[in-house]
């Protein structure tokens, strides 16, 4: 296949960026989207040019590191798919593909398609855990958990922290990400003692990091590669309200 790539190039967060156009003539449909970038970069290095910087690691859709905005959609055209799991068989010969970084105030650009998502880490550090030191646990089967609850908690816990929800939201809201962690722990007995303080602290830091407000458009759920449900946001809103009333 012949593919034309328009890729966002930006040296660092301080200098302005621009689109550059690259022509690839020998793209196989079995290639993953990132393998196409490997070929582009190989080419650029051989031409004494600087390769495109992009984040990626596991390349099996689970680490959450890859993060390209492809043709106006986070992680590209396929639903429930990360960029690294997107394969070229979903594009056509002669296609032009526009690739941009995540764009959000809370995710400053580092270089080209690479952004700084450490704000997510700081939200988790504020309360996305159960306070249990190593060695303090009781026997794992001493607290039975209904299968439905465990399954729902798992669905929320499947979030890979890639930031597609933020990138796709017109307000760059992080509600889906934050609510997934809040929900996971709110659904389990282990999460109950800190349920109120957790949601308050996480929301506080989420706001302080510069993420926008949620206006319930649901775009995040549509673009989430792990199909995290909007229900989690509703659950978090309820918990947040209850926690504030309880004070």
């Amino acid at each position: 296949m012949k593919i034309t790539l328009k890729v966002w190039r930006q040296q660092n967060g301080k200098t302005p960026g621009e689109f550059k156009t690259y022509q690839l003539n020998d793209v196989s449909e079995d290639m993953s989207f990132l393998e196409m970038f490997d070929i582009l970069n190989d080419d650029l290095v051989r031409k004494q040019d600087e390769p495109v910087a992009f984040d990626h690691d596991c390349r099996e859709g689970i680490c959450g590191m890859c993060s390209m905005y492809i043709n106006g959609r986070a992680h590209g055209p396929m639903t429930g798919t990360t960029t690294c799991q997107l394969h070229m068989r979903h594009f056509k010969d002669g296609d032009t593909i526009v690739v941009e970084p995540w764009r959000a105030t809370a995710f400053p650009i580092i270089k080209d398609l690479m952004v700084d998502r450490s704000a997510f880490d700081r939200v988790i550090q504020a309360g996305g855990f159960v306070s249990v030191n190593t060695g303090n646990a009781v026997d794992a089967n001493s607290v039975p958990i209904p299968k439905q609850d465990a399954d729902k908690a798992f669905d929320a816990a499947a979030c890979i922290g890639c930031g597609a929800c933020v990138a796709t939201c017109k307000n760059a809201s992080a509600m889906l990400f934050v609510s997934a962690k809040v929900s996971q722990l709110a659904l389990l007995p282990q999460g109950q003692p800190e349920r109120h303080i957790r949601v308050k602290k996480m929301v506080e830091i989420m706001d302080a990091e510069g993420f926008g407000n949620c206006t319930n458009t649901g775009a995040c759920e549509v673009e989430c590669p792990k199909e995290i449900s909007l229900e989690n946001i509703a659950r978090m809103n309820r918990d947040y309200l209850v926690a504030n009333i309880a004070d």
């Binding site: 159960v130 607290v143 039975p144 465990a150 816990a157």
Partner: peptide, 20 residues
Amino acid sequence: AIIDQCVAQGVPFAREYGGL
């Protein structure tokens, strides 16, 4: 002890209908 620790942290392991 690892399984105990992970469950205490809220790791959602697969469960039977009886909750175990």
